[in-house]
Amino acid sequence: MNKPKITIIDYQASNLRSVQKALEANGAKAEISDKPEIIAKSDAIVFPGQGAIDPSMKKLNEKNLIEVIQSYISSNKPFLGICLGLQLLFESSDEGEANCLGVLEGKSKLFPKSVKTPHMGWNQIQINIQNPLFDGIKSNSYFYFVHSYYALPKNNTIISSETDYGVKFCSSIVKNNLMGVQFHPEKSGPNGLKIYNNFINFIKSGKI
């Protein structure tokens, strides 16, 4: 697969252009779209996110994107959730009332009061599961985080890295071709760009 069709899902919840630029910087083209038919036909999906859970689920619902995302993930095509895009994969969040996408078991929790929220800045990831996304990335590398809630998967065998901030929390997951990172690779300098490059290479390798 030389020129994979990558789609960045648009539900008006994040700085989509920065994600697109990071993919472009690695020689890939990506379309920003909120159309279910385009998303369904993509070779890979990037699902970014910022802001609050409830308005995001509301937007996904209004745009008829919930089912298409769920069935895309169950088809096991490459899918990368970023920040809120990782948290939305779980069943719920303490941040809001809405049911989330529920493709992974677990929920998102608020950081303890002992630390400042949001968790904002550069922090390290301890890699638990080496996977294609982390090719050439060393454990304890720094990435840029900004979030107040963190995902707590029920099945901890999907936790591919952990990060320390008051608690040891899940900073990325991998389950077959479904991947998610809590940090923002598009804001994490060379290490972050490497993550996008790895994702593109993974799509091209066609190990689907």
Partner: peptide, 8 residues
């Protein structure tokens, strides 16, 4: 600036 900047 943001075209080429990959930090916040």
């Amino acid at each position: 600036v943001s075209e080429k900047l990959f930090i916040p």
